[in-house]
Design a protein around this nucleic acid. Structure first.
Lengths: 154, 154
DNA sequence: TATTGTTATACTCTATAACTATA
DNA sequence: TATAGTTATAGAGTATAACAATA
């Protein structure tokens, strides 16, 4: 059976995948994700660990619950991430006087340094990957992605 | 310790996550993915199953290896996807005369119908989610995402 | 030798539910 | 009752490596 099917339904489908924002978003994300991994190397931080470290550096003394909320994941999922960051010596869980339930995440000097170095590497890789785009285009892309985020993250 | 740390490293980090294309891509993708799942309901197809069906409908008689290549995943990963589509009655594995290794993927009438219906639902949801963007902006976003894809899928 | 489909296996990311210790 | 951190567990999604059948 060739493309001239009995009904015309296939016409509504043909290549319409290519017009979906979601499909293109995923395909592009997969590429940038692979680039990210290459940037930080085989024993480098994963994207989520790097994100957690970045936010912990940006907001020192943040709690795990706050950080999870900020990252859009569950509290429970953050435990292993913080475990890894602590094992790498990039931050410490520190008791907070006044509320013995919470533990503040305090980045170490080494953690701040590693964060900056990782960011440099990721930026360099991203710049190389996206050298087909102009600065203006990248800015536009960022703006549009943030528009989607604003819609979904409220 | 407040933000005026001993060194100025934090300044290079603060909120720089927000300027990375990769980070924004992922955050936006997570939102659109959740929207997709909602569009197709609890017992609906997953994104990858829907993608496979769409491509099988668009390219009838495609082989699994070709489809996997097209989707950017491994052959082995496609087996369970095609299993599910066959169980749902959306396509059939059909022997190909001339090469007994390959099995052509032939969508059923029901499969083509389901594909169109799913696409309508996904489109409607995507339109509602992205109603904060103009048609022009969506077009621009698609163009820029495809630019990244061209770079990585080249 | 190379390719197609397949199985087995493992790893990453994430969610849910329940637990503990606090509040 | 509610919250913070934790554990156990399960489910997607994907990759790698090997295999049998076929080319």
């Amino acid at each position: 059976m060739a493309r001239h099917a009995e009904n015309q339904n296939w016409k509504l489908v043909a290549s319409d995948l290519e017009d979906l924002i979601g499909y293109n978003l995923k395909r592009a994300y997969v590429i940038v994700r692979a680039d990210f991994r290459e940037a930080l190397g085989d024993d480098g931080m994963s994207a989520r660990v790097f994100s957690a470290l970045s936010l912990a550096v940006e907001f020192p003394n943040i709690t795990q619950s706050e950080l999870a909320r900020m990252m859009g994941i569950e509290r429970s999922g953050l435990v292993s991430i913080v475990d890894e960051l602590e094992q790498r010596g990039f931050l410490n869980r520190v008791a907070v006087p006044g509320d013995r339930r919470v533990q503040a995440l305090v980045p170490t000097q080494e953690g701040r340094f590693a964060c900056v170095e990782a960011l440099k590497a990721v930026r360099a890789h991203e710049d190389a990957l996206l050298d087909v785009m102009t600065a203006k285009e990248k800015e536009t892309l960022l703006k549009l992605l943030k528009k989607i985020r604003m819609r979904g993250e409220g």
